[in-house]
Simulated assay, not measured.
Amino acid sequence: MDENRRPIKTRSARWARYITDLLVKRDLSPNQISVASIVFALIGIIALNIDNGVIGSILCAIGIQLRLLCNLFDGMVAIEGGRKSDIGSLYNEFPDRIADSLLLVGLGYAIGYPDLGWFAALAAALTAYVRVFGGSIGLAQSFIGPMAKQHRMAVMTVALLLNAVEATLYASHYLLLIALIIIAAGSVATCVTRTLAIARQLKGAAHVDQ
C-alpha cells in the first residue's frame, strides 16, 4: 500500500470494489472522478445558500457525501483499477482543496459568518499543506486529526442534518455556526499535531543517523 495514501477501511468493502469495477468498465478516469467531487461540493453549497433550511441542508449533506465518494473512488480506480496517470497526484490534491474551500466558505456565507468560513477554509488547506510538506522532505505523510478531511465533512454533514430540524423549529442556525467553529479550531489543532509529528520523525531520523 502507498504510505502516502489516506487509510480508508471502506476500500476493502465489497460494494466499493464492485462500483470501482463499474467505473473502470465505463472508462471513467480517476481525474474525471476527482473533478466531479468539486461539482458535487459546488451544487451542495449553492443549494444551502439558496435555502439554508430543510431542503438546502439535506441537498448540501448529500453533496458532501457524493464528494467523499468521489474522493474514495478516484483513488480506487487509479490504484485498484490500474488507471494511474502521470498527473494523477495533481488531481488527487487540488480538487480536494477546492471542494473543501467551497464548502467551508459557502457555509460561512450561508449562516452570515463569511469571515469564519474563510478562516476555516484556510485552516483546512493548511492541514493539507503540513501533510504534503512532510512528504516533500521524505517523510511518510501524516493523516492524523483531530480534524482531518473526513472529520470536517462528518461534522458538517451531521450539523446540516440537525440544522434541518433547528431551522424548522426555531428558524435559527446555531448548530451550523458551532460546527464551523469546531471545524476551524479543529483544523488549527490538526496543523499543530501534524507539525509535531513531522518534528518527531525528523528527530527520530537524526538519532538513527548518529
Rank of each mutant, 00 (worst) to 15 (best):
K149M: 10
A16S: 14
A167W: 12
K149C: 06
S37E: 05
R83P: 04
A164V: 08
T157C: 09
P146L: 02
M156C: 13
S12W: 00
F119K: 04
N92K: 12
A110P: 04
I111S: 01
T168E: 12
N31T: 13
G117M: 10
S57A: 14
D51K: 09
R6N: 10
V24E: 04
M147R: 02
I38P: 06
A16Q: 05
T127A: 09
T127L: 07
G117L: 05
M147K: 02
S34I: 07
Y174A: 09
I98K: 07
H207F: 00
T190A: 13
L177E: 13
L22Q: 14
D115K: 10
L68G: 01
V35C: 07
D27L: 11
F143E: 08
A16I: 15
G53V: 01
L122V: 15
Q210H: 11
D115C: 03
V105I: 15
L107D: 03
A197I: 01
Q141F: 01
G75C: 10
M76V: 08
A16P: 02
S172T: 15
L202D: 03
I181D: 03
I178Q: 00
S85K: 06
Q141H: 01
A47Q: 09
N52T: 08
S142F: 00
L22T: 03
L139T: 01
I33C: 07
S34H: 07
A78I: 08
T193A: 15
I33H: 05
L180N: 08
D21N: 13
K149G: 10
G56P: 04
Y174I: 11
I33K: 03
A154Y: 14
W15S: 14
I198T: 10
A47G: 13
C60V: 07
A110V: 06
K25D: 12
I182S: 02
A110I: 03
S89H: 15
A205S: 09
I144S: 15
G81P: 09
L22G: 00
A148V: 06
I183R: 02
N4H: 14
A189C: 09
F119G: 03
A124C: 11
L104P: 07
A167D: 09
S12G: 00
D209R: 14
V132S: 15
K203R: 15
G82A: 07
I111G: 01
D51Y: 10
K84P: 02
A125I: 13
G138D: 07
V188T: 07
S142V: 08
A171I: 01
R131D: 01
L28V: 12
V39W: 10
F40L: 11
Y113F: 13
V192N: 02
D2I: 01
Y113R: 09
C60Y: 09
I38S: 06
Y113N: 06
A189Q: 04
G204Y: 09
Y174P: 00
R14H: 02
L116S: 11
A78H: 10
P30D: 07
A167T: 08
S57P: 12
L23T: 06
Y91R: 06
S142M: 00
